Computed example of a mutant assay.
Amino acid sequence: MEIKLGKYRHFKGNEYEVIGIARHSETLEEMVVYRALYGDAGIWVRPAEMWNETVERDGKAFQRFTYIDE
């Protein structure tokens, strides 16, 4: 699944902006580089595979991140 640059909503409600896709220097695993759109606007990385996961909470399934805007 392609990961677009732009705004996403985490299943817990916070919003983030994907600013790039990078590769881990040792494993070459694709990583999503993203910025929080709240608080101190920290920059984070997460494996692309995990970004696209479906998670379960309170017996319901959710996409971990849902694209909302460019």
Rank of each mutant, 00 (worst) to 15 (best):
A36Q: 12
R35I: 09
M1Q: 06
G6F: 04
L5V: 06
E53M: 15
R9L: 13
E70P: 01
R9W: 02
E26N: 07
A48C: 08
G13N: 05
G39Y: 10
M1G: 11
D69S: 14
M50A: 15
E15H: 13
F11D: 03
H10C: 09
T66S: 09
H24W: 03
G13T: 04
I68Q: 05
H10W: 08
F62L: 06
F11Y: 14
E15R: 12
N14V: 12
L37M: 14
R23F: 09
L28P: 00
V55K: 12
S25G: 02
R57S: 10
G39N: 11
H10R: 11
R46G: 01
G39S: 14
Y16A: 02
Y8F: 08
L28R: 05
E49Q: 15
M1K: 09
G39W: 06
E2F: 07
A61I: 13
N52D: 14
Y34V: 08
N14W: 14
E53K: 12
K4Y: 06
A36D: 14
M1I: 07
D69F: 01
W51S: 07
A61R: 13
V32H: 02
F62S: 03
K7L: 08
G6D: 09
L28K: 10
A61P: 00
G6I: 09
D58G: 10
G59F: 01
T27H: 06
V33F: 01
E30C: 00
F62G: 03
I19G: 08
R23Y: 12
E17I: 10
D58T: 02
D40C: 07
R57D: 09
I3N: 03
G39I: 11
G42Q: 10
I43K: 12
D58A: 06
V45Y: 05
V45D: 08
Y16P: 00
N14A: 15
D40M: 13
I43D: 04
R35C: 05
T27V: 10
E2V: 11
E17S: 12
H10V: 03
A22Q: 09
A22H: 03
F62Q: 02
E17L: 13
W51E: 06
K7S: 09
